[in-house]
Write a protein that binds this DNA or RNA. Structure first.
Lengths: 155, 155
DNA sequence: ACCATGAAAGTATAAATATGCAACATATAT
DNA sequence: ATATATGTTGCATATTTATACTTTCATGGT
């Protein structure tokens, strides 16, 4: 019930330009959800959705940090294996495969979570190219990534 | 005058955890700026600073989109080097880190500017993987890139 | 079955934020 | 020099958003 609403909110946020909670509320009503602004405010807080100034001189609600979105999905959706993530090495590089659309978010989690081990990442839609620092072993990388991605699978 | 204030705001935002405009206002007062909440609200809007929910169950003001910040810096601060770009080598590859969103643009600058030295580039959002031609030395690459990116920093 | 516990949501309101308007300053043009 | 435009700010207030408090509902334990 609530989860469906959260999904709807995310959908509204990402597909339409909304500048106030009342606007979001109206969209939710159209979709058959009845709730008050108070509840919406709490939902937005939980999903870390924020109202940010935009270029057109107004404000717009957005999911500002990908990592936040991931946290949210992971939290709400424990049962399904959102994070079937695999890693495979090739030479000095590693390639991670994720669910479609998740590469960017996870890559930035890695970027911020393993700065000692990696030089950088490049993310497509479902693939992450991971460039380790020179001298960092594969096992060290796996060790560190396991903290960021607990159920990572080595291919 | 106003610019100094904007700088101070940015500094406060990035270095301390503030959760309301009144808090920011107090910090500004300590630094000798006198202004009202109304003005601060306008400043924040201009700089696209937003209040976003954080992990600790509260809210925090941040510069949510780096691109916005860059726009702002470009506007306010033309002279300074917006593009802090670093390069690091790993094996036969090089990885450049740029400000988020700039990788594509810079990569194509490199593509067109150093065809003798590189095979190609792959750009993510803030990372460029640079594949040099066989036999090209690291110093040669740096030499060439320095022409394209004058203030590139070697890690 | 009964109670405790906790999540979820509404109500009312506090708190926080945005903005219309007027005043003033500074620049630009006539 | 005067007029016109442009930008910045405070004041007051409207609007918007967050939350304390309460009720309800579901769940698990005894």
């Amino acid at each position: 019930m609530k989860n469906q609403r959260l999904e709807a909110i995310k959908d509204i946020i990402t597909h339409t330009k909304v500048g106030s909670q009342d606007e979001i509320l109206m969209h939710l009503n159209e979709r058959g959800f009845t709730l008050t602004q108070a509840t919406l405010s709490r939902d937005l807080k939980q999903m870390k959705i924020a109202k940010v100034p935009n270029d057109q001189g107004g404000y717009i609600y957005t999911l500002p940090f990908v990592s936040s979105r991931d946290t949210y999905i992971l939290k709400e959706n424990k049962s399904t294996s959102v994070t079937e993530i695999t890693i495979e090495f090739s030479g000095s590089l590693a390639v991670l495969k994720t669910k479609p659309g998740y590469a960017g978010g996870i890559a930035s989690d890695i970027d911020s979570g393993a700065p000692e081990e990696i030089i950088g990442t490049i993310a497509g839609d479902d693939t992450i190219l991971l460039i380790p620092k020179e001298g960092v072993t594969r096992s060290r990388i796996i060790e560190t990534l396991s903290i960021i991605i607990p159920n990572i699978k080595i291919v």
